[in-house]
Design a protein around this nucleic acid. Structure first.
Lengths: 162, 162
DNA sequence: GGGTATTAGTTGTAGCGTCAAGTATTGGAG
DNA sequence: CTCCAATACTTGACGCTACAACTAATACCC
């Protein structure tokens, strides 16, 4: 039992604010989307990632990577989105273990209709309070933290969409 | 329907990394605490906030503020923590509507035993990948975002503890 | 090419959080 | 001093996520 490397005051202040943001932000994103589109943020994010993919289609594993989700989580959400008619799942021909998730036309229209309100929320709560230099710092900081949280780069670096 | 103020490439990059961190970080904190202490991060945070309060006691509303939680959420968690013997709830004498939550001796020992492993996880995943300047930037950025997310300052600025 | 390990995905269950509703107490308004 | 509104919680039901267990197909190995 050696002595612990505690956080100093500056580190503690930053950490407490970070924790608060991590707790509060998802709720803000979810409320707006739930209210205006009856979608959770994660559901929207799934649709958005599909909308940017070639043929609006992605294998479940790739989609899970692009959305920072586990496969079981994505599978459940895909079922719900399928029921709503936003997504179709079809067995993959090249690898019969795999499943392709495709955004339907209805799903695409949903993304198009929902994106503006969502972007406005992101701007209002995150981007607009920050200067361009702040945004550059945010990119750097989150990049560093991500590199530790996700060393395997399961997180898809090429994906697009707000 | 005027045209939308989309994010530019820099903003989008920063936002996507931020979202990924917000998705992944809670899981990392929860796993470590669950594995080593059979506590969720939120449960630990509640105990930690109480441990820093005068007489290790806080009214439910104050505790909810300090932990960035809604009252119903805190109430459920307090019930669980009470069952585990870490917390006691007693009616408040000055205001009979209110409830005081107090950390028991067992709860205090739990915090003391759990803190080192938790701090190590926070260091490993967040603090240590960052330079001191980065930490200062993190403090600034999260402060700005918090001011928007929580304009009423429900979030307790005086609370302490990692 | 048979056997095993790995990969891809689904499903069931249990636990946690949100939302809506309900109770009790206090603070004002007139 | 009597209402009515607001505050401080608690509770119950529902939905989402993590975890574990399962099926199915492919890759590797000799």
């Amino acid at each position: 039992m050696t002595d612990v490397h505690w956080l100093d005051d500056n580190q503690l202040d930053a950490w407490k604010k970070f924790v608060a943001v991590v707790e509060l932000l998802p709720g803000v994103l979810d409320s707006q989307l739930q209210r205006d589109a009856e979608l959770s943020h994660f559901e929207y994010f799934v649709l958005a990632m599909l909308s940017e993919a070639p043929s609006r289609t992605l294998r479940m594993t790739a989609l899970a990577g692009a959305t920072n989700a586990t496969l079981p989580r994505l599978s459940h959400v895909a079922s719900r989105l399928e029921k709503k008619g936003f997504v179709e799942r079809t067995p993959c021909e090249e690898d019969k273990r795999a499943t392709n998730a495709r955004l339907t036309e209805l799903g695409y229209e949903k993304v198009v209709a929902t994106a503006p309100g969502h972007v406005a929320t992101v701007r209002e709560n995150v981007i607009d309070p920050l200067s361009p230099e702040d945004v550059a710092h945010l990119d750097r900081l989150m990049g560093r933290i991500l590199a530790t949280l996700d060393p395997e780069h399961r997180f898809n670096p090429g994906a697009r969409g707000a």
